[in-house]
Amino acid sequence: MTDVYNINTSPALTFAKLGMNGDRISVNTSLIKKENVEQYIFGNGITDTDDIDEALPGGAAGQDIDRLLSTESRIMTVKGNAGITISFSGSGVIRRVLKVARGVEAEVVEVVKGKAPDIALNSTSYILEKNARLKLIRIQMLDKDTLYVDDLRAKLHEDSYLEVVRLDLGSKRSYIASKVSLEGKNSEYKAHGDYLLNGSQRLDINMIAEHIAPDTVSDMRCDGVLLDSASKIFRGVLDFKSGCKGAKGAENEDVILLSEDVDNQSLPMILCGEEDVEGNHGASVGKISDEIIYYLMTRGFDEEAAVRLIIRSKFNNITSQLKNSDLRDVINRQIDGVLS
């Protein structure tokens, strides 16, 4: 059964003619099989549980995509550091709820790999209880003919802190839908995503930070490099709901374009219904600044080497956060492969 699904519809619409308000995908649901997706958990920081007693946040991918989430959620508790590998071997849907218990401080490294030409759908909800702190590193290195949907949701209780670091390298088309609800007073969310797209890769991002409680803080950054005929759309939303007094939000984008055939679309939005907030967004799009290239050239690098150095250093910011040196090497090799 092939059906068409709306995906990543923008929370606020722009001029319809720009074609930036959302996308649609066709999915053959009969190909989706449970055995096509495996989850491996490393370390003993994560255990299965069955207690979940609160409403889960809605996703940024949209209600249409919710229809694809027919499988049961696996419910887990995060008590400490852990690694998770999710591997696709055909159309698959994985749905998980991870609860970071009160006061727990943890780092979870998730690697998504494998191959699924029709759809690989990874839907994850994180619930951070009071005072919980989670650093989530997600590395996506799916095979280059995969259609990937990454539906990340998080709900932050009082005084909790979520940091999401992500690196998107693989798949042919990917959709990143991320919605973080800052529901507890004083909760904080920081996101830093990097992507490297070449060939005809396309990345479609819909990232929402929803400030509900007072004194909440968000800081979203999404940087990337486009080569060949790659294309990308970034929709980022700071949504200040009435009552989120003292909230602060920032979103930033920095995109480097390295080929004549790329297409880069950006829609960085601020929606504001509260007076006492501070919101900022900034974007810079284009080639690497002449000044930086010149500085590196005065130190002996030719222009091409200077560009490579700058891009490598950009990704170093992410890969240097990985403690697993094997994984770091695999990623660095993949980056070098694209840049050479």
Partner: peptide, 24 residues
């Protein structure tokens, strides 16, 4: 000659406002 070739030849310029290169 471009700046990198001059650097290879042995010329160095100390910048008044040196550029930041994050990540390296």
């Amino acid at each position: 000659l471009s700046a990198d070739k001059r650097a290879v030849k042995g010329i160095f310029l100390s910048f008044q406002n040196p550029i930041e290169v994050p990540g390296i």
